[in-house]
Amino acid sequence: MTAVTGADAARPVPEGLERFPFPLTEDAYRYSTNVEPARKPVRTAAGGWGTRIIDIDGHYDGELRERAAILQRDPSRMALAPHMGPAAWDALMYCLECLAREYPDRMGLVREGRRFAWSNRLQDLRVDGVIGDDDSVPGGPLTFLAGQIQEDIALLDKREGALWLDGGVVTFASNWSMAFDVGMRFLEIHGPVPRVHEERVITRAHDFLMRMQPGEAYRRTNWSMTVDRRLDVSTETYPEWGSSRTEVLEDPRLPQRLHLRVEVQHLIALPHTGAVLFLIRTYLEPFERLAQIPQWRARLHAVLSELPQDMADYKGLARYRPRLVQWLAGEDTVRR
C-alpha cells in the first residue's frame, strides 16, 4: 500500500475531519484495556481531539431531534432503577458543570445550595431546577440530560463487588439493546465479545472501574462500521437497517455509504454517589472521506487486512472487508 505521497500529504484536510477521533494507532488492532485519562489531547494526521469530556459539534441539533423522536417512539431506550435517583442527579449536575466550564459562551450554570439555573443558548433554554426534585426538570434528571448532550448515557451502580447497569438513555446503540442489558452486571454485558475473556481485557477493566475514586474520569475508544449515516443501529431497529448490510455490497457507492463508526467512551466515577457514568459518543465518517487523509487510508488498509476473522465477524464487518480492502489499496473493481 503506497498511497502516502508528498503531494497527498499537502492536500487540505476535508472539513470536519480535523476533530475526528481516528481510533487506530497501530497497523494491527486487538482488544486491550485501552483506558486513559480524560481530556488528554490526541494528535491525528488530520488535526486532533480529546480535550473535552462532552463534545458539541455541527450535528448537535439534528442528533438531539433524532434522540427525542426515538424516545417518543420507543420509551424503553430509557431506564432508571428506583434506587438510582441520586446517581441520576449526580450525573446531570456533573455534565451541566462540564458543559458550563467547557462551553462558557453557550452554556451557563448558577447554583445556590440545591437550587440551580441552567441556560443553554443553543436551544434558547432556561431551566430552574432543584437537585433531588425530579419534577423540577423536564422529563426528570436523566431524560433532561439526554436532551442537552449528544452522548448516550449509561449509569452503573457499584455493589456486591460488581458493577450493575441500572440506568441510562441509549438511543444510538451499536447493535445492542439497553432494554435487554439493563439490570445486568458489567461482566455479563460483555459476554458476547470474543477474545476478551481469554485475554482478561474485561476483568481488568472491571477491577479498574471498581477502584476508580469519585471525581476521576477516564476514556477509551471503540470502533465498527455502519452503512449510511445511521446512529440508531440498536437491536430494536434491526429490521430497518439489517438488509442494508448486504444490499450495499452491490452498490458502486460503497465507499461513500460505508461509515467508520467510532465511539469515544468516557468513564466517570461520579463525585457524590460514586456511581459510574458511562458516556458514549458516536462519530460516523464515510470511508470515501477518511481515505482523503493518506495516513488514515494506509492505516485502515493495514488494520482491515490483518484483523482476525472472529473480531471481524463480531464487529459485523466481515462481509465488507474484501471490497473495502481492495478499494483502500486503490484496486477496486465494482462487481455489478
Binding site: 486491550s32 484495556t33 485501552n34 483506558v35 486513559e36 485519562p37 481488568r204 477493566a205 477491577d207 479498574f208 477516564y218
Partner: peptide
C-alpha cells in the same frame, strides 16, 4: 496510556 497499571 492509563498510568494506573491496567493497560499494559
Amino acid at each position: 496510556m492509563c498510568r494506573q497499571g491496567v493497560c499494559g
